[in-house]
């Protein structure tokens, strides 16, 4: 199964990166952890995100589209980085997160969310869409 692993933001991470020995050490530790993930065939993708002050939001309400500039207030709910992992189950994902070095200099949180898989959509595709699909198939078969 594929999981998305979110590194949640902190007051510090929202300030951006200021060089320090602790930060350098964290990069070294995180580099080793990423290497372990690669060698175990677990890591599919991942990146760190700039503070929300570099971000924008688009708010939807009916036909209106309002652009809101960062930074955004609810720091602990913001995402500072993510990975996509291929693991056997949630237990394995948790075991991997537990051996991750603390991604922040102070207390922090990592959240694991399973990605929807093919089977999860079974029965969810509307009949209409299915008909369109079948129609396309027939047309091609009779081409």
């Amino acid at each position: 199964m594929r999981v998305m692993v979110f590194v949640k933001a902190t007051e510090d991470s929202e300030q951006g990166m200021t060089p320090s020995p602790e930060l350098s050490q964290m990069f070294v530790d995180m580099g080793k952890f990423n290497e372990e993930l690669v060698n175990a065939g677990v890591l599919v993708a991942g990146d760190g995100l700039k503070p929300s002050s570099h971000g924008k939001r688009v708010a939807f309400d009916g036909p209106s589209r309002a652009v809101i500039d960062g930074p955004f207030a609810e720091t602990r709910e913001l995402v500072a980085g993510y990975w996509l992992w291929e693991v056997k189950d949630m237990d394995e994902a948790v075991a991997w997160v537990k051996r991750c070095p603390n991604p922040m200099l102070g207390p922090s949180e990592i959240e694991i969310r399973p990605v929807y898989e093919m089977d999860d959509f079974a029965g969810l595709i509307p009949a209409e869409a299915a008909e369109i699909h079948d129609g396309v198939g027939e047309k091609l078969a009779n081409r």
């Binding site: 056997k88 189950d89 237990d91 394995e92 948790v94 075991a95 537990k98």
Partner: peptide
């Protein structure tokens, strides 16, 4: 389960 997951890794 946590121990078994670690073991599997």
């Amino acid at each position: 389960r946590a121990i078994e997951a670690t073991f599997r890794i």
